[in-house]
């Protein structure tokens, strides 16, 4: 079996007459954590949505697990990829365990109850996201970090080989940023899934991702290992920033680690 998870060839997305993405080529393999980075409005989320088949392509193609997106049955596709959105948009204050169980949706037969497989997937997802302690609380009563982990568990419950996450650490404190990224990386390294994550924090992107794809104005500006992508030139060109000299830094605590044990 090939270990290719996502193959994008010449993808182009238009909104009205304006090209939002043009000539996107990318290959993402199983077992790697790939970061999508770029300035605001560069097209990161659009690319993520296009890769999931949520955004129609004007031109080009996307292959998921070696099969063209257009030939996938929507339900089968739903079992093959999972999407972790930003937390905060939960519609109703439903219980955490029920929220996570919604991830089993693509596996459920109409009018049929969920089975032991679903229960096992639910248990496993809640364990991996470390949210068992508040399984019976309403999801809207949780803190941002807890909610992000609940969304992560919901996506994991799908049991898909490919995982997408759109800015999963936006608005989280450092502890939870590290926690969520560690969990995503574990999914790639230990579970062999392909994980694609949109990130704004370049330091964390550099630290956690195997590869980075830098997007600017709808096209790929640079791609490869984090060191080469986050070069001085790329940062100056794309982000219009220059990295600080270590000598300039005063009183900044970098890098950090999560402390083990209860908060």
């Amino acid at each position: 079996m090939s270990d290719s998870a996502i193959t994008i060839r010449g993808a182009m997305v238009q909104r009205g007459n304006r090209p939002v993405l043009s000539d996107i080529n990318a290959d993402i393999r199983m077992g790697e954590l790939v970061g999508l980075i770029g300035p605001n409005g560069a097209g990161k989320t659009t690319l993520l949505r296009a890769a999931m088949g949520l955004q129609p392509l004007k031109d080009g193609s996307v292959q998921i697990l070696g099969r063209d997106l257009a030939t996938w049955d929507r339900r089968d596709l739903g079992r093959s990829l999972a999407y972790m959105p930003q937390s905060g948009a939960e519609a109703w204050p439903i219980r955490v365990d029920r929220f996570v169980a919604l991830g089993r949706h693509p596996h459920l037969e109409p009018w049929r109850r969920s089975g032991p497989e679903d229960a096992a997937a639910l248990r496993h997802a809640m364990q991996a996201a470390d949210i068992e302690a508040f399984a019976d609380r309403p999801v809207t009563s949780l803190s941002g970090g807890e909610r992000a982990r609940v969304h992560f568990a919901r996506a994991l419950a799908v049991g898909a080989p490919i995982l997408f996450a759109d800015e999963p650490i936006a608005g989280l404190d450092p502890y939870h940023q590290l926690h969520v990224l560690e969990m995503l990386r574990d999914q790639a390294v230990d579970q062999g899934r392909a994980v694609v994550v949109v990130l704004h924090d370049l330091a964390l992107a550099h630290r956690f991702c195997h590869r980075l794809i830098l997007i600017q104005d709808g096209h790929i500006q640079a791609e490869g290992n984090p060191d080469s992508v986050l070069s001085k030139d790329h940062l100056a060109e794309t982000y219009r920033v220059t990295p600080a000299d270590p000598g300039e830094l005063t009183g900044i605590v970098l890098p950090w680690h999560r402390r083990a044990g209860p908060a």
Binding site: R49, M52, L54, R74, R75, L77, G78, R79, L81, A82, Y83, M84, P85, A89, E90, A91, W92, I94, F99, L102, G103, H105, P106, H151, R154, A155, V158, F164
Partner: peptide, 15 residues
């Protein structure tokens, strides 16, 4: 139920 997670997440699950 699936829409509780959000529109894109629901669509990603085949809704």
């Amino acid at each position: 139920d699936a829409l509780t997670v959000g529109e894109d997440a629901a669509r990603s699950m085949g809704v």
